[in-house]
């Protein structure tokens, strides 16, 4: 399959590039571990003082954090660096080179740069899950696992779509390079389950900026606490979101090409 070949070639180039910087490679791997600890420590302190917060016990909260660490790895390891390059392309006017290549532009730009050491995040997330379920005392069932996997796909899709939307804005208003950075920091909110928030914020993080979809629902699925209706709605909603993002991306690409020629 051509798309697969393109992706694997791009990944190899990224890995080779990353390996060029010896010090960076070692340090970045260690950094990923450090940041995971930074995410865990406040949680440990909170639950050192309380048995449950907003209806979540410590191991349950760890499951949410596990999803957060994994998705943050995906976001900062693949999506952000790649899309930052698009913004750079737009500013320098070199995006044309990308658009000239005979492959889907969205695919090309969204995986063009990968930070391989972010695999550490996924490993860390797995470790957190194992630890959390040891505390809970029983492993999730196959049904729960597969539902969680489905929701993971949905979560990545939504995350990816938001990133693509942010970049589409960069086509129109070039000076918003840091918008992606802003989103990255808003994403930090997803480390808590959405019941931590109340009132307006809870609504925003569930429906407007669907952070609940990314960490809370998959965590609930693993814990066997997600009802079927919410699961289906989440899956459908995420596909809808991705389609809209794709349409907006295509239209802004069209606008870009017609404006620059």
């Amino acid at each position: 399959m051509k798309a697969l070949r393109v992706v694997s070639a791009m990944m190899r180039a990224s890995v080779a590039l990353a390996l060029q910087y010896r010090l960076e490679f070692v340090v970045e791997g260690a950094l990923a571990v450090l940041w995971m600890a930074v995410a865990l420590i406040p949680l440990m302190v909170v639950f050192g003082n309380r048995g449950a917060v907003a209806g979540w016990t410590y191991p349950e909260m760890l499951v949410v954090l596990g999803w957060f660490v994994a998705l943050k790895g995906v976001l900062e390891g693949t999506l952000s660096p790649s899309l930052m390059q698009v913004v750079e392309h737009v500013r320098k006017g070199t995006l044309d080179f990308v658009l000239l290549k005979p492959a889907d532009a969205q695919l090309l730009v969204s995986l063009s740069k990968i930070e391989p050491w972010r695999v550490v995040d996924l490993a860390g997330a797995a470790a957190i899950f194992v630890y959390a379920f040891q505390h809970i005392g029983h492993a999730p069932s196959i049904a729960q696992l597969s539902l969680a996997a489905g929701l993971l796909v949905a979560a990545v899709l939504v995350l990816y779509s938001i990133a693509i939307l942010v970049v589409s804005i960069a086509f129109v208003a070039v000076r918003v390079d840091n918008l992606l950075y802003l989103f990255q920091s808003v994403f930090d909110v997803a480390r808590w389950p959405n019941s931590v928030f109340r009132g307006l914020l809870a609504v925003v993080f569930t429906y407007v900026l669907p952070l609940a979809l990314m960490t809370t629902y998959p965590a609930l699925a693993l814990l066997g606490k997600l009802n079927a209706r919410t699961a289906v709605a989440a899956l459908l909603g995420s596909f809808l979101f991705a389609s809209v993002a794709r349409l907006i991306w295509l239209s802004s690409i069209r606008r870009y090409t017609s404006a620059s020629s």
Binding site: R12, V15, A16, L19, Q20, R22
Partner: peptide, 16 residues
Amino acid sequence: RRQPGLAAALRSLVRR
């Protein structure tokens, strides 16, 4: 001294 290719890049992690 840098050489192209993934294998050479990996080697250079150990010995430069």
